[in-house]
Simulated assay, not measured.
Amino acid sequence: MYLPPLRFPVRTIGARTFDFSRQVAVMAVVNRTPDSFFDQGRTFVLDRAVAAGFEAVENGADWVDIGGAPFAPGAPIPVEEEAERVLPVIAELRAGSDVVISVDTFHAEIARAAIEAGATVINDTTGLSDPRLLPVVADSEATLVITHSLAAPRTSYPRPHYDDIAREVAEFLADRVERAMAAGIPEDRLVIDPGHDLNKNTLHSLELTRRLSVIADLGLPTLAAVSNKDFIGETLDADRTERREGSIAAAVVSIVNGARIIRMHDVIASVAAARMTAAILGLREPAYLRHNLGDAND
C-alpha cells in the first residue's frame, strides 16, 4: 500500500480541518459558464449554480469548486464578467455553509475578490501564469492549488510531448511550489494537481494516473481532477454523458496512488467510492460493524 509522505497532513481550510494522512476529500464542481465542457451551461444561471453548490454539500461534498471561465482555448473572458459569474455564487454558498469553497481562476483580481466573498482556496489551473496571484494569496489565509499546465491561458498547445511525464510534471510542480513559498505562502497552504488532460494527450493522462505516486512523493496533498475528462472518453469510446464509471475508476486508482483530493461531478458516487477506497487502504473505519459478529450469521 502506498501512502504519500505528507509533511503537513493536517490542514485547516476555512472552517474545516482535514487529516490527509487518513482522509480523502471530495471536491464538487460548479461551473457558471455557458460552454462548460461537461454540463454545457446547466449551472450558468445564478440560482441554478447556487442550488448546485448546496446540493453538492447535502450529498457529502467536502469542497465546492466554482468556475467562471472554461480552460479550453478560446477568447479571454473579461475579468469583470468572470467576477460577476463567480462572486455571487461564492457569497451565497458561504452564507449558508461552512464547506470549503475554491474559485477556479488565475486572475489576481478575481482571487482577491473571491477571498473577500468567502472563498478559502484559489484553484489556479494555469501553472501560476499570473505572478500577481501569489502575493494576493500570501496576504490572506487561503490555500493555493498549483496545477501543471504549459500553455498560456485559453490558448492551444498542439501535440504535447514528454520524455517522462510523471517526472517532468513533478519537476514543474516543485518549481512552482518554490516560487509560491518564496512569495510568502507557507507550505501548509499549498496543494498540487498534475493537471490531467491539460496540455496532455490521453496516453499522458493514463500514465499520470498510473504513476501518480511520483507527484504525491513531493509531500503535498495531491488533487486529482479526473472527472469526465477526455482521456476517459477516448479510452472507453464514451460521450461526455457516459463517463461516470470511468471517472470513478480513475479516481479510485488516483487515491490508491496517493491522491487525497478528487475533483468530481457525481458527488454521491464519488463520496461512496472515496470512503470505500479509504477503508480498504486502512485509512478509515467502516460506518458500522455487524456482519458475522453476532451469535447468528447476518
Score class of each variant (00 low, 15 high):
227 S>Q: 00
125 T>G: 10
264 M>I: 01
42 R>I: 11
160 P>L: 12
48 R>E: 14
145 V>S: 09
161 H>L: 15
79 V>L: 09
29 V>K: 04
181 M>V: 09
70 P>I: 14
152 A>R: 10
169 V>K: 01
293 L>A: 06
61 A>C: 11
178 E>D: 08
168 E>I: 04
68 G>P: 06
131 P>G: 11
43 T>P: 00
163 D>V: 11
111 A>M: 01
113 A>R: 02
130 D>Y: 05
49 A>W: 01
259 A>I: 06
58 E>P: 08
93 L>C: 02
128 L>G: 06
15 A>P: 06
129 S>L: 10
4 P>G: 05
225 A>W: 13
272 A>P: 01
285 E>W: 10
202 T>G: 04
206 L>Y: 15
187 E>N: 14
207 E>R: 02
197 D>P: 12
279 A>E: 04
288 Y>A: 06
23 Q>G: 13
227 S>H: 08
281 L>D: 09
159 R>C: 14
86 V>A: 05
19 D>M: 04
219 G>Y: 00
123 N>S: 06
32 R>D: 13
107 H>T: 13
90 I>C: 11
185 I>T: 08
201 N>T: 15
293 L>V: 04
75 A>N: 02
229 K>T: 08
48 R>H: 14
97 S>P: 04
248 I>T: 13
121 V>N: 02
27 M>N: 10
255 I>D: 04
141 E>I: 09
254 S>V: 11
254 S>Y: 13
223 L>C: 11
229 K>V: 03
111 A>Q: 02
81 E>N: 04
32 R>P: 08
198 L>V: 03
3 L>Q: 15
58 E>G: 12
87 L>D: 06
102 S>H: 03
241 T>G: 08
123 N>D: 01
242 E>G: 13
42 R>H: 15
250 A>Y: 01
179 R>M: 12
3 L>K: 14
252 V>D: 07
